[in-house]
Design a protein around this nucleic acid. Structure first.
Lengths: 204, 204
DNA sequence: CTTCGAATGGACTAGAAGGTCCATTTCTAG
DNA sequence: CTAGAAATGGACCTTCTAGTCCATTCGAAG
């Protein structure tokens, strides 16, 4: 199938505007709470444009949103996430994560975590897309743990894969509790707890 | 307002059947993925019955489902959760939690966790209901940590509230990752990680 | 300048979903 | 036994929503 339709600069800009605006709406109100008419209104586009850029309709748009949010989440941590090789770097990453979720006035969940829990049970394709982002994220954390071991800052008991999962789960679970409780405290407690656990493997 | 309508035994049974069946459907397909017609079909009831027992419509039904799932989740752990006063008890609780999510063939999220992430951002009333269940759950865990300290099994560095949040977040985050990945492994890693952290505060 | 495909506007459709209404049956209390 | 309330059945209405279609405008290349 002809996947790459020719897009002019204007067209690409419109497509990007749709995805990014829709991503924000979905983050705030969920996939089910966001209709194509909502997207159309917020992006000042017409119905035909939505289907022009996303021929498979809402499903394809949501898939693009997943990709957008996946990139956003990783990009937001990118500098710090790639350089986890000292305790100071872990502390910086921790602060970056907390700060990232503080910036918005209303407390909300993780862009891809919320998407995942709403969509994973229903749509296998999107579930796989989301699983891939989680895997990337987890691998970056595991690489950080691995670097700490290589440098002799962590003992051999610190399994990279296990700690990566523990840290990622702490963020996701912490954000879920934070979203429900209306305060960032749970996220802070959960993430700091997981990091404290990591620190118990520190080599003095 | 006349909140307590008189329900006959038959009526109460029908109402319970609706709530419990609908709770299962919502768990499998989400709130947005479950229509009143789906519920009607699965419970062999009529539209008028749904609105007879839940005058405020879907919103009221979902609220009843939240209560149902909240009870279910706590009940599933109840014996072990109330008796967290030894390391063996923690291990038993851990196994109970894992076993509880193993029983179903398809891997799914936490009944109230999934509900929360779908509904918390949109409906303040339901969000508060869910927050209350999380709080109860967290308090039971904190009480367990407290008992361990009283018995001299944990040192004073083990903050009950912080560990309760860390454990709960590990379960919620672990389940989210498990649901997405299609295996229980993330839940096991996250929960075991949090428990390992707790054990670093053990008094020998 | 013309031409053709991309970009856009917007009316329209089919169906799903929540919710209303009323008739009928069943149960319970006196 | 009977009156009134509860329980039930199901048609019907309204609104929302994904998706279709065609006409029009815009823009780049020859």
């Amino acid at each position: 199938m002809e996947r790459t339709r020719r897009l002019t600069a204007k067209g690409a800009a419109t497509r990007a505007r749709i995805v990014e605006t829709a991503a924000d709406q979905v983050l705030a109100r969920g996939v089910g709470g966001t209709s194509l008419d909502d997207v159309r209104a917020a992006t000042r586009t017409s119905k035909s444009q939505l289907f022009h850029y996303f021929p498979d309709g809402k499903h394809e748009l949501v898939r693009a949103i997943v990709a957008c949010q996946g990139e956003r989440v990783l990009d937001a941590q990118r500098p710090a996430l790639d350089a986890l090789d000292s305790w100071a770097a872990w502390a910086a990453w921790r602060d970056l994560v907390i700060a990232h979720y503080t910036r918005v006035d209303g407390v909300l969940g993780c862009p891809i975590g919320s998407l995942s829990s709403e969509v994973a049970a229903v749509d296998p394709v999107l579930r796989d897309d989301l699983a891939a982002y989680f895997r990337t994220w987890s691998e970056l954390l595991a690489a950080g743990v691995g670097r700490m071991r290589e440098r002799g800052l962590l003992d051999d008991g610190a399994d990279p894969e296990a700690f990566a999962t523990e840290l990622l789960a702490a963020i996701q679970g912490g954000l879920l509790l934070s979203q429900t409780a209306g305060t960032l405290r749970p996220l802070e407690l959960a993430l700091d707890g997981a990091l404290a656990h990591l620190r118990t493997h520190a080599v003095m």
